[in-house]
Simulated assay, not measured.
Amino acid sequence: MKDSSPAITLQRATEQHIDGLAALYSDPRVSRQALQLPYQTLDNWRKRLGPGVDYERSLSLVALHQGEVIGNCSLEQNPRVRRSHCASIGMGVASAWQGQGVGTRLLAAVLDVADNWMGLQRIELTVFTDNQPALALYKRHGFEVEGHLLDYALRDGVFADVYSMARLKRRQG
């Protein structure tokens, strides 16, 4: 039986993906769930991916469909020595591709690197409390809610709550 799902590839984000990343996070349906301002400039994305990035302590992946950036997931190891066993995750998926497994593939790939290549023990993230699809995704990958942070971030002119979530490797099977 032939697989009818569209071909999606994962790659490390590079300068060739800057336009696609800027477009992804300029979509209000994506940027409202991420902790960054909409309408980021291409120069801001160049700084995130250009010289000075510690590629030993960070990984930014893009999901591509026919060369178009349809998702992104980043992992950043904590630079503090006593917290070097920890990293944080941020991600976004194009609204047209949400619910189609893109986030699952990105998150699984980043967690594989965290577990099997970086030896990280604790992965942390924050997620808006009303983002049920993201909460379900993170819980499927072993993340647990550790706290409820009130008025954490301004979103759409209103302060919104987030959950602080973490995945501890020692608790994984």
Rank of each mutant, 00 (worst) to 15 (best):
L37H: 15
F128S: 03
R57I: 01
L120A: 06
C73V: 00
Y25L: 00
G142Q: 09
W97E: 02
N44F: 05
W117F: 08
A96N: 08
N72W: 13
R32Y: 12
D43T: 03
S164Y: 15
V110Y: 13
A63I: 00
V162L: 06
R12V: 10
D19W: 02
Q33I: 07
A87H: 07
G50F: 00
A63Y: 01
S164K: 12
V93I: 03
T41A: 06
A136R: 15
P38V: 02
G173L: 15
Y163D: 06
H17M: 03
A63D: 09
L149S: 07
N44L: 04
Q100H: 10
N72R: 15
P51V: 07
M1A: 10
F159Q: 11
L125K: 01
D3H: 09
R57W: 09
S88K: 14
P51T: 11
R46G: 14
N72C: 04
G173T: 14
L111F: 02
D19F: 03
E76A: 13
E15P: 05
W45K: 12
V81D: 15
P79A: 06
R83A: 10
D3G: 02
V113T: 07
R82A: 11
P133W: 00
A96V: 05
A87K: 08
D27N: 12
N44W: 05
R57A: 02
N78A: 07
G92I: 04
Q11G: 07
H85K: 04
Y39Q: 08
I89Q: 02
S26N: 10
W117G: 00
H17D: 01
F159C: 06
L137A: 05
G119K: 10
R46D: 06
R82F: 09
R46M: 01
D27T: 08
Y25T: 06
E144R: 10
A7H: 12
E146S: 08
Q11H: 14
A34H: 10
G20D: 00
F128N: 03
S164D: 08
R48Y: 03
T9G: 01
L24V: 02
N78T: 01
A96K: 15
Q121V: 06
D156H: 11
L111R: 11
V30D: 13
G92N: 11
S74M: 14
V113S: 06
T41M: 02
S5R: 10
G173Q: 12
G20Y: 05
L135I: 07
